[in-house]
């Protein structure tokens, strides 16, 4: 009898190890120590650093006029896509579905503060819809366990942005996420492959800590005509006419070409190719930005 009990215990432990399911449920508060200025106040115009973009993406961003998201009503309530939602105002609630017969997790559900966006990640082996089906801002996500890490694959995304200064992400992109939990911390590493705008995968990471007392308010969004505009107007800059593109390089004393993005600029070897870097004598912009709420331009 002792032998049987031992065998059952061993079997149960083995199954648990094989399934290696981690419970990500809870209220998660975002940490903005990575890329704080971009995620809080918003990115600088013309800052394409860190992105392996192609010429098409660069030109698309150069022609972008931020008036578009206020003047064009259809943009006013447009949410972050599944990829950017992890970076934006990311107060996050996660809950899960459990199959009562197997006690296995069959889905995680995510709710974000920004635009009240919700997303489901399926773990029940269902297939992805065909490409000709409707695409959505959150896309269609399935996941598998790789040890204690949850690997999520998202397809059927709508066009959105890589960065909120006009850098585009297409509806052909595939988003891969790797979820890991370390005690009270959650890290999601994202890999975006976009054959339309990226020449290499874009890898980023975002972090949260558990915050049981967090209350996510209602975001709400209702679009309205607040700025008079001609019928059908789409604000944009004509090629060569955007006078804001050099601001970022000038503020931080960077070589302009280094701010233009592209795979080559991501690697250390690129330093030897650019003109000598002369940092400004004194930091005047985003000098002490560690969270969403202290990202003041003159924070020094």
């Amino acid at each position: 009898m002792k032998f049987v009990s031992f065998f059952c215990l061993l079997a149960a432990l083995t199954v648990a190890a094989a399934n290696a399911q981690v419970d990500f449920t809870g209220e998660w508060a975002p940490l903005y120590h990575e890329d704080g200025p971009e995620r809080g106040p918003g990115p600088e115009l013309g800052d394409y650093t860190e992105f392996p973009i192609n010429d098409a993406a660069r030109m698309r961003a150069d022609s972008y006029d931020a008036d578009r998201i206020s003047v064009v009503q259809e943009y006013q309530c447009r949410p972050h896509g599944a990829d950017y939602a992890l970076r934006g105002l990311g107060q996050l609630r996660i809950w899960r579905d459990i199959d009562p017969a197997t006690q296995r997790t069959t889905a995680f559900h995510l709710h974000f503060l920004a635009w009240d966006s919700e997303r489901t990640i399926y773990l029940d082996d269902r297939p992805h819809p065909p490409d000709y089906a409707l695409h959505t801002f959150q896309g269609f996500s399935t996941a598998v366990w790789e040890g204690n890490m949850l690997t999520v694959t998202t397809t059927n995304l709508k066009a959105n942005y890589l960065r909120r200064n006009g850098l585009p992400r297409s509806d052909k992109a595939i988003l891969t996420e790797h979820w890991t939990k370390h005690g009270d911390y959650l890290t999601i590493t994202t890999v975006i492959e976009d054959p339309v705008f990226l020449t290499e995968p874009l890898v980023r990471s975002d972090n949260w800590y558990i915050d049981p007392g967090q209350h996510i308010g209602i975001f709400g969004c209702e679009y309205a005509a607040e700025v008079p505009k001609p019928e059908g107007a789409v604000p944009h800059h004509l090629p060569g006419a955007n006078t804001n593109l050099r601001e970022f390089a000038n503020w931080y004393g960077l070589p302009f070409e280094a701010t233009r993005g592209g795979a080559e600029t991501l690697y250390p070897e690129y330093r030897s190719k650019i003109t000598p870097y002369n940092p400004p004598a004194k930091c005047t912009r985003y000098c002490n930005c560690t969270s969403l709420f202290n990202c003041n331009v003159d924070s020094r």
């Binding site: 259809e74 943009y75 447009r78 089906a133 409707l134 801002f137 709508k158 066009a159 059908g232 789409v234």
Partner: peptide, 12 residues
């Protein structure tokens, strides 16, 4: 593919 308003906006 099947679309909705956002897709028409991109094309417009």
């Amino acid at each position: 593919r099947l679309c909705d308003e956002s897709d028409v906006v991109e094309y417009r």
